[in-house]
Simulated assay, not measured.
Amino acid sequence: MANNKLFDGITVFVQVVKCGGFGAAAEVTGHSNSYVSKEITKLESRLGVRLLNRTTRSIALTPEGKTYYQECVQLISDAEQAIANITQSTVEPKGTLKVSCPVWFGKHYLADVFTTYLSRYPEVTLDLDMSDKPIDVIADGYDLVIRATAKLDDSSLICKRIYRSRICTVATKQYLKDHGYPQHPSELSAHSCFCYTNLKKFNMWEYLDKAGNKTLVEVQQRVLSNNTEMSLELVTKGLGIIRVPEFYIETQLQSGDLTLLFDDYIFPEIDVYALYPTRKHVTSKVRFFFEVLDKLLINKNRSLDHDVF
């Protein structure tokens, strides 16, 4: 026999977590504080586990509560999408699209995408996090996360490759004039190098020649930073050598402000991915965002074999 109380309290529980407290959740849902509190207590009693640790000033998810919350968020999303499919409300996306993307890539490659998307769909609000920090897509409530990586970690998330770029080692002519032009990657150990600390082995730079021989160099770390834009600013002042995806430096390479090193080596490639929770019920907000993304960005990077929804 079906459990008639299977979904009781779930929406209230999710709202309490999102709002960060019973009072705020009561205000959003239009119920009293006591009603919200009783719903959570009944839900915990029915499940036989504590979902929230409560103090007079705050609440916090228990380990069981965190797992249950993630499942409930997905359950509500699926239910909303099912209703949207039936009512055909997917024709015009509405609500908040929560996106996280790297600062540089977002600023220089996605600004037109965001502009076109928002202009085309005025009922959508964009909640944009410009950051390179690790994101828990589901727990943090993101619809979409964009990240650049040479190797995508195993994940239950759906990934769509949206851009590809080679990784380049560069410096200014003035730096090379003052400190010498390295003819072989092994010579980098004698140079001032700028390292990106979000990489696991940020001070180990690997090179592959066209004969298939690998060279692994432990570089001298002149500057450590988690912000590539700042590091590039310093490199363009002639302070050292940096290794970055080409999309960061296309303009400087074309103008000659930066010089490409080791161009007789095989360039490794880095991919930019859009990650999202599920393909089963892709929301209209995400679906229409990808349509704009596909037209303005992916089609310009034709080396990709991209998905079709």
Rank of each mutant, 00 (worst) to 15 (best):
L224I: 04
A274L: 01
T62S: 10
G30L: 07
Y142D: 07
L118S: 12
N213K: 11
H306V: 14
F267D: 01
L188V: 05
R57M: 14
G95R: 08
S225E: 04
G238D: 11
F247L: 05
F22T: 12
Y35P: 00
Y35A: 06
W205A: 10
R243C: 09
E291Y: 06
A24M: 11
I242S: 01
E80V: 12
I158R: 07
E250P: 00
I167F: 15
G106K: 12
S34R: 14
T259H: 11
R50E: 12
K173H: 12
F309S: 04
S131N: 08
F7E: 10
M230A: 13
D154P: 01
E92Y: 15
A111W: 06
K201W: 09
F105Y: 14
L199G: 04
S192V: 01
A139Y: 13
L216Y: 07
D132I: 00
K214T: 02
C19M: 13
K151S: 07
R120S: 01
G23W: 01
T172F: 11
F105H: 07
V137R: 10
A274D: 03
T149I: 05
S255C: 09
F247V: 09
V14N: 10
Y121Q: 00
I266W: 07
E233D: 09
E250L: 09
A274I: 02
E218G: 13
V272M: 14
K98L: 01
G238W: 04
A171V: 06
K285I: 04
D257S: 12
A211G: 04
I241W: 10
A60N: 14
L97A: 05
